[in-house]
């Protein structure tokens, strides 16, 4: 066992954090009273650079911040927006909470599912899109609503979905 509570064989699988990742993590550490507090920040930083959080990345952060791997995994799996599996180039987050449900998000869901051939939790074969549900996006007066990456798309209709998907395909 090492100080971070990991078994030695898995430690060798940790990847090396990039200088950029380390810089950003170090900056976060200055903002909190305890460096163990930045576990989530570090996971988000790594995900921003790598697209998702692999076991190797998780172990690297765990060693860097001296947080037991199991604790960090507990944090990583708790949050909806930390991806422990590879995701597509564009992550679609479709709101399926109450106002969007009233305004017809089920129909939008079925349409996207058919159009991209993927259900919630899946990634399209071409690696372009991952499709996930998300709780209320705080955009209920413009329901149905969804995010693609960092961008919000609102007052969705089936026609609008066609346009939006095309827009991201072209990027």
């Amino acid at each position: 066992m090492t100080s971070s509570g990991l078994i030695a064989s898995s430690v060798t699988r940790a990847r090396k954090l990039s200088a950029e990742e380390i810089n950003e993590i170090e900056h976060e550490i200055t903002l909190y009273a305890d460096k163990k507090a930045v576990g989530l920040e570090a996971l988000k930083i790594v995900q921003k650079h790598q697209g998702w959080v692999s076991d190797e990345s998780l172990l690297a952060i765990s060693q860097y911040l001296d947080i037991p791997g199991s604790d960090l995994e507990g944090v990583a799996t708790f949050f909806n927006l930390i991806f422990r599996r590879p995701v597509g180039k564009n992550v679609i987050l479709l709101c399926n909470s109450v106002s969007c449900w009233i305004m017809g998000c089920d129909e939008i869901k079925d349409y996207i599912k058919e159009k991209l051939g993927i259900d919630f939790g899946e990634t399209s074969d071409d690696g372009e899109f991952t499709f996930l549900p998300v709780p209320c996006l705080g955009d209920c007066d413009r329901a149905p609503s969804m995010m693609v990456g960092d961008n919000l798309h609102r007052n969705l209709t089936l026609d609008k979905i066609d346009e939006i998907i095309q827009q991201y395909r072209n990027q």
């Binding site: 909470s97 109450v98 709780p135």
Partner: peptide
């Protein structure tokens, strides 16, 4: 952390 369904 606004996330209460229907709250915007």
């Amino acid at each position: 952390d606004e996330m209460e369904p229907g709250t915007f």
